[in-house]
Amino acid sequence: MTTVLVVDDHALFRAGLLAVLSAMDDVDVVGEAANGEDAVAAVESMQPQVVLMDLRMPGIGGLAATARIAERHPEVAVVVLTMSEDADSVFAALRAGARGYLLKEAGADDVQRTIAAVARGEAVFGPRVAEQVVGFFSSESTASTVPQAFPELTSREREVLELMARGLDNAAIARRLFLSEKTVRNRVSEILAKLRARTRAEAVARARDAGIGGAPG
């Protein structure tokens, strides 16, 4: 039996989903929430195995709630269940720590299979979402045949460097990547050390010279 928390701000949709889940023999709905703050609190008190999370909600929203749950309770699998299928939403959810991403048009069987899979530690995406994920990594694989600048940096450090080169400060980078500002400061320090850059401005200049983050506008 898999324990599940349902999070959605639309009461009618939430009620319908609860009815569907309640008819599943292997699912036990332990609670519901209508916003991100309540979702985080409910995870703390109810300890579900799986959270079905909407993205667009009042307050901190589904992405920030997912990031907090993933950080504090990595054993809890968050599955995003949303109307949004754009690439930005998909990859923002993955960066936040979601282990699954389904569209609200998914059938009951798909939802049931997804709950069981993520409870086992798997990652699951709906068909149209999976196409975007596969397409992204296929393009990344093709791009990887071209030598990258600064191979000494990790993928996360390259991501931080790119945002630095776009002009974002540490607070903005932290929000974009769902990290703490302290973590971002540490990443920046590591980048400067690896690039042997004396200042942040020098690292940004080198990044832009290498075509990372675009030229200053």
Results as ranks from 00 to 15, higher is better:
204 V>R: 07
31 G>I: 09
192 L>Q: 14
136 F>V: 09
19 A>N: 11
151 P>M: 08
43 V>R: 14
131 E>V: 07
62 G>W: 00
85 E>C: 02
173 I>D: 06
105 E>C: 14
73 H>E: 03
17 L>P: 12
84 S>H: 15
85 E>G: 12
178 F>K: 09
59 G>F: 03
85 E>M: 08
190 E>P: 11
131 E>H: 10
187 R>L: 13
101 Y>V: 04
203 A>L: 09
23 A>P: 07
58 P>G: 06
53 M>N: 08
167 G>T: 03
68 R>W: 08
160 V>S: 04
41 A>I: 12
32 E>D: 08
216 P>F: 00
64 A>T: 07
34 A>L: 07
208 R>F: 11
84 S>C: 14
196 R>V: 15
207 A>H: 13
96 A>N: 01
194 K>H: 02
207 A>L: 12
166 R>K: 14
96 A>I: 01
110 D>R: 13
102 L>E: 08
118 V>N: 03
3 T>H: 04
77 A>M: 13
197 A>K: 00
122 E>R: 13
50 V>F: 11
138 S>G: 15
183 T>M: 05
185 R>V: 04
162 E>A: 14
179 L>F: 10
180 S>H: 06
178 F>V: 01
126 G>N: 02
188 V>D: 05
29 V>I: 02
138 S>D: 15
143 A>R: 09
124 V>F: 03
80 V>I: 01
171 A>R: 10
128 R>E: 09
188 V>L: 05
50 V>L: 11
200 R>C: 07
65 A>L: 09
47 Q>M: 15
64 A>G: 00
197 A>W: 05
174 A>K: 11
182 K>Y: 12
19 A>W: 07
143 A>V: 02
3 T>Q: 09
23 A>V: 03
83 M>I: 15
193 A>E: 15
122 E>Y: 06
142 T>S: 12
25 D>A: 14
61 G>S: 13
109 D>A: 14
115 I>W: 09
126 G>V: 04
148 Q>R: 11
39 A>F: 05
114 T>S: 05
20 V>I: 06
53 M>P: 08
39 A>D: 01
198 R>Y: 14
136 F>C: 10
114 T>W: 04
155 S>L: 13
184 V>L: 13
209 D>R: 14
113 R>L: 11
47 Q>Y: 14
104 K>A: 08
207 A>T: 10
99 R>V: 04
11 A>H: 04
38 D>T: 03
133 V>F: 12
158 R>D: 02
53 M>R: 09
215 A>K: 12
149 A>N: 07
140 E>K: 06
184 V>Q: 13
175 R>M: 08
126 G>F: 00
1 M>F: 03
198 R>T: 15
93 A>Q: 00
180 S>K: 04
159 E>V: 02
119 A>T: 02
215 A>T: 12
103 L>Q: 09
196 R>S: 15
102 L>G: 06
102 L>A: 05
197 A>M: 01
201 A>E: 15
125 F>W: 06
54 D>E: 04
152 E>Q: 10
9 D>R: 02
116 A>E: 06
119 A>E: 01
154 T>W: 03
205 A>Q: 11
68 R>M: 10
134 V>M: 14
99 R>T: 07
83 M>G: 14
209 D>L: 15
141 S>L: 03
49 Q>S: 13
215 A>P: 13
99 R>D: 05
100 G>H: 00
172 A>F: 04
213 G>Q: 08
20 V>R: 04
10 H>E: 11
156 R>S: 03
17 L>G: 09
107 G>D: 13
68 R>C: 06
46 M>S: 05
122 E>H: 13
